[in-house]
Design a protein around this nucleic acid. Structure first.
Lengths: 205, 205
DNA sequence: CAAATTTGTTACTGGTCGGTAACAAACGTA
DNA sequence: TACGTTTGTTACCGACCAGTAACAAATTTG
């Protein structure tokens, strides 16, 4: 029935379609579990078109991660933009948005962590990209906790990152029972409130 | 040199050796990345001995997870046993021990989360085992936060779980730079201090 | 020692995967 | 129209993988 002969994808649209298919499949199924052929089928293009644009599957994975990286920073900026120059509201907003996303049925956690799990070799290029991304995230959090005026901005930033990653992980290991995730904004709110202007000399034993 | 002919493993020791090799390889490299042949080689036994004791690779994965499950509860009990009937010290101790383990070079995060990442199908038996385990962990935390007398034991238990999972995840996405992990006990200490006897009516807006 | 059980060895199957070669068809450009 | 470029098609390669069959050797049990 499906006469899929010679229905050619014009110009440079192949790359876009490949990346879209790779995004969906890699994120939902994992890297090792998704073959290049599966991506080819989903993208509705040809296998050779993949290897004409990407030198290898690893290359495609890296392109996928870069796309996800851009998506993350867009989400970050959107959360920030809703409360300009209000670090506290910005951070709470980010976690509220995260809780919403994590409640979705398609949510499969943090794609960077997932990739790191599948590529244990620290020297692997994919792994290096993930590490660099994590460092940038820490810096972004730190910049906000400094702006917030936290007593210990580094510790607070690290705590927030743990909560974020914990949420990513939790959404995968639990099934449909994700009711607890909605506690997240409240948790962050209390944490931020306690982190500024409180016991400033708690560091010294 | 290695004349490895006819060096037979006696009695029921095969199972033990297989599980030991599977533990090391599955945890370090991941499930999909480790072939049955690799386990066979590492265990120094024969491939047929694997399939005589485990009906399939999935069966072996489940046995691996059950072993890890037992190991987790042993670590949990050990942390608890150091401060009997002192929930606060017990929880801090657990996170201090976690921080130590997570600082190790061989640490590769939470094996349950790692497996969940590699098996996205929620109906997969491996996945169900992971979910059941997570629920039991939550109950264990909850029991301790109740004993602690926390104002909101469920929220506190959930926060602690996020911190634990976040630590698991963080240790994988960062490289050797895991200095921040040592902040964990201090973070938990402050969290516990703030969670008991504080603003009890904070829930109502 | 003899029989039964357990393990090791070798060889194999059917399948999947990443990647490539060669050629045909469609498109853009002139 | 004619040419170069890009895509699709088919077929294939070598490697790897999960799992099995048949037989030989070692160990236990009697």
């Amino acid at each position: 029935m499906t006469s899929k002969k010679r229905a050619r994808v014009p110009r440079g649209q192949a790359q876009e379609k490949i990346l879209q298919a790779a995004d969906e499949l890699f994120y939902q199924e994992g890297i090792h579990a998704v073959s290049v052929d599966a991506i080819v089928e989903r993208a509705g293009i040809n296998k050779m078109s993949v290897y004409r644009q990407f030198s290898s599957k690893t290359d495609l994975v890296i392109a996928y991660l870069k796309k996800k990286q851009a998506a993350f920073w867009q989400e970050w900026e959107e959360s920030m933009a809703r409360h300009p120059d209000r670090p506290r509201e910005q951070l709470v907003q980010f976690f509220a948005d995260l809780a919403d996303r994590a409640s979705s049925q398609e949510f499969r956690g943090c794609c960077f962590l997932n990739v790191a799990v599948e590529f244990p070799d620290p020297a692997h290029p994919v792994r290096e990209l993930v590490c660099a991304h994590q460092k940038r995230i820490f810096d972004a959090f730190l910049e906000r906790t400094v702006a917030l005026g936290a007593d210990n901005p580094r510790e607070l930033a690290y705590t927030l990152i743990l909560l974020m990653k914990g949420t990513h992980a939790d959404s995968q290991t639990y099934g449909t029972d994700n009711a607890a995730i909605q506690l997240l904004p409240s948790i962050v709110e209390k944490l931020l409130a306690a982190a500024v202007g409180a016991d400033a000399g708690a560091d010294s034993k």
